Amino acid sequence: MTRSRLPASLAASVALSGALLASLLPAASRAADAPALAEVWGRSTIPLGDPAFAADGRLVTSHHPAFATAERVSVFAAPDRLEPYPDAGWNAGPSGPDHFDSVQGMHTDSKGVMWMGDMGERETAVPKVVGWDTKANRLVKTILLPPPATVPASEPQDLAVDETRGLVVLADEATGQGGDGSQGALIVVDIASGKARRVLQGSRGVVPEDRDIVVDGRHLQRLDAKTGKRAPMRVGADGIALDARSEWLYFGPLNGSSVYRIRMADLADASLKPGDLEGRVERYAARPNAGGMMMDADDNLYLTEIEHRAVGVIPAADRCYRRVATSPDMLWPDGLAAGPDGMVYVTVTQLPLAAPFDDGDMKARAPFLVMRFKPQPIGARATCG
């Protein structure tokens, strides 16, 4: 993630609001092992998706496909004002190599290239990966992901970028077109050649557990627009994160009690047979149902705790999950991004109130929030719990 400086107008807002928050929080809230109270940084009139910072420090966001917004990708021109990103043309259909359809996962690499995963869900288009140079403001590459890299149920969700090997890896939750997540997989994309491989389909770590998602006492169900039937929400591979050395890739389903990992060297080895590759997947740690993932330079793995309006972390030192930030306004924290100001930014989607998850009735209401918190030192624990 780029660490470029914020524009002066935003930098002043960052410094002032961060100092104000620190002065207002009681000491106990700022203790190393106590969850921080996340603050509101930005407000949007339209639903949000995942965040990523451009090279100039501006926050870019996708818009969750469940809300079917006219906008596909936007940039915060100010904490309360969005503009199309990179321009209006990319946000106007029809879907194609030079137009967005339904973007979700985003990640900016060290060169300032923002890689965006496009599900193609809106128009049942071929999913794709788009690389946009946020410094030069130009297209780097569009890589289409036709079968066999994708299946009819494919919904490539979040993504990670391995700059060492020139790869993009997408987590395919496999809940499109009535899918139940059982075809969850990872998609490994070679940036130079554009070739993509579907791996680990149906394996542990990429398929959902039979474990309900419960938000505010309600067991979340999903409405199938084609059949009109409802079923408990089951989502495959969702969150994904790569460590700073490009050694280990971490991932897991939305419905799941564990985080899994695999060595990137193994994932990049196209000669490995499917069974051999599956055998190299490791269970890393216990966790609650969780969505977005982000790993810092010290191998602390942050996760959005979708059921409890919180963000948690699994430190490498003890692999014990604990909450690090909460807010009553954090209804379905989704994506995470490390800001150039040292804060962690969290998009809040209100997803349980979107029409597909609420009897077809859209109950989510503006403002849709971007929240943030400052990471604190994490002490090791002797035992988890």
Rank of each mutant, 00 (worst) to 15 (best):
G131C: 06
E247C: 01
S44F: 06
P156Q: 05
D180N: 12
A52R: 08
R234A: 15
A290F: 09
F357V: 00
D296C: 09
A28D: 15
S154C: 00
F53N: 12
S193T: 14
E163H: 03
G57A: 01
D216E: 13
K374G: 05
F368K: 03
P79D: 02
F357D: 00
A31P: 01
E163W: 01
G178Y: 06
Y284R: 04
A8M: 14
M116F: 05
E71K: 11
I46K: 07
Q221C: 08
G202H: 05
T326Y: 02
S13C: 13
A11G: 10
D162T: 11
P127M: 07
D334W: 00
E305Y: 06
R30T: 14
V168R: 04
G217T: 02
G205F: 08
D359W: 00
Y302Q: 12
C320I: 04
D358S: 14
P315A: 08
L351P: 03
G339A: 10
P340M: 08
V103S: 03
A19D: 14
M1P: 11
G194E: 11
G57L: 07
P65T: 08
V348K: 02
G279V: 08
P352T: 03
V169G: 09
R381Q: 11
L139K: 15
T227D: 05
F76E: 05
C384G: 03
A19W: 13
L186T: 04
L48P: 09
D212P: 14
A231E: 15
D299N: 14
G252C: 01
M106R: 08
V313R: 09
L331V: 15
Q183L: 15
G89H: 13
G120D: 11
V206Q: 11
A290T: 14
A366M: 10
